[in-house]
Nucleic acid binder design. Structure first.
Lengths: 209, 209
DNA sequence: ACGGTAATACCTCAATTGAGGGATTTGAAC
DNA sequence: GTTCAAATCCCTCAATTGAGGTATTACCGT
């Protein structure tokens, strides 16, 4: 049975070309195409598509919102982003919203066809440069002590980031309460923060610990 | 110029087959193959390969260690994991260690060839089921309010997690200082913590915010 | 031998927080 | 119409923390 596809793309010429191209093959069936995501949820529920091709830059609700709408309405529909954007910001927003693939518009048609087949088979097609970005995001950069913390200061910060009080940290490290407080007072300016809570927030969100 | 490849694979028959297969094509040059990662660092420095094919399950240092060794010795060498393992644990360990690709051993030869070309061109070849796992890891599950926090409590916790004091939070939300303290007192038992620092640690590490 | 850094420890004071209360209003649910 | 949860606000008291010091020991590099 043909793969049911819907397209969200504001550029009319491109949208029509895509529709025409996909419809020309018996393997694919474009069951709807739209210039914006306004009714993405209800459209998805009505048409029950296997795949949604989603542009990002559209008037009104953009494609990032669009992914969320489609996925919430019908998680089985696989969403492939189809965009010119290559920046990390938009990329990871789409992935967090549930996108199942991410293709750049420079992708040649045969790769696009392959990607649609792949996503239906449970894969996650990505343009090569996108895949590289995604994998790179896992290397937490080894923060290599950006803030010049000493060994002991790092230990104190690690325990602080578990929510421990100065007293408990002192016990854990077998040093005095006042020493811990001294370390904390030295840590804060190095992290450019003013209190323990900010320090925890920074340590955890920048993976210093 | 031919792509320089090294192979780490403890199964001798498979290692020899791979070498033979790749050497049969002028496009590829297998400059070394080894049954373990013991000297991966020095080998990499000596042979200056473009690509390393890396098994995971090997005697001695396993392939996860191996990725780290190769990448530390020579970051320009692209490492492709080549393994039967499909579990998240090993997968994400490899990615964090710096792997540039992840292929399952069931990958047909033509896809393997393509993957090697792709990784040299700056891509990140992955078997479809692997790519899907990687993308899924970005959907932080929308924690669906495991701790039964009310809307307001969630807002307070979000601001707390930025390191704000009760006074500042009060200002941000346009409510009184004492109200914020009331919310905090209600939040702590719900999160099973005893103080703001623990709450921040929990909120950030469990992505409640 | 000297200077610098890290690690240790102590003191004081003001501010913030945690803990224990109590109290009112609103809107939704039954 | 009553009950209930959510959101608002106030009070007190003890503990913790932030800020401002000072001081000693040890080790490292020159």
């Amino acid at each position: 049975m043909a793969i049911r596809i819907i397209i969200f793309e504001d550029n009319e010429r491109l949208r029509n070309s895509l529709s025409y191209l996909l419809r020309s093959m018996p393997e694919y069936d474009v069951v709807g195409d739209y210039p914006n995501c306004r009714d993405a949820a209800s459209i998805t529920l009505t048409l029950q598509p296997d795949v949604a091709l989603m542009d990002i830059d559209m008037p009104g609700e953009n494609g990032i919102k669009g992914v969320g709408m489609v996925k919430e309405a019908r998680p089985e529909t696989a969403v492939i982003m189809y965009t010119v954007f290559e920046d990390d910001e938009k990329l990871f927003q789409c992935l967090c919203a549930g996108a199942n693939g991410y293709l750049l518009k420079k992708t040649p048609p045969d790769k696009l066809f392959e990607a649609i087949r792949e996503v239906v088979d449970g894969g996650a097609p990505m343009s090569p440069s996108i895949a590289r970005r995604v994998l790179n995001s896992f290397q937490h950069a080894k923060t290599e002590n950006k803030y010049q913390l000493s060994t002991r200061e790092l230990e104190v910060l690690q325990l602080l980031s578990k929510g421990f009080s100065a007293k408990v940290i002192a016990g854990e490290l077998n040093i005095s309460f006042e020493t811990v407080r001294s370390h904390l007072k030295n840590i804060y300016p190095k992290l450019h923060v003013n209190c323990g809570k900010e320090a925890i927030a920074k340590a955890l969100s920048e993976r210093i610990v």
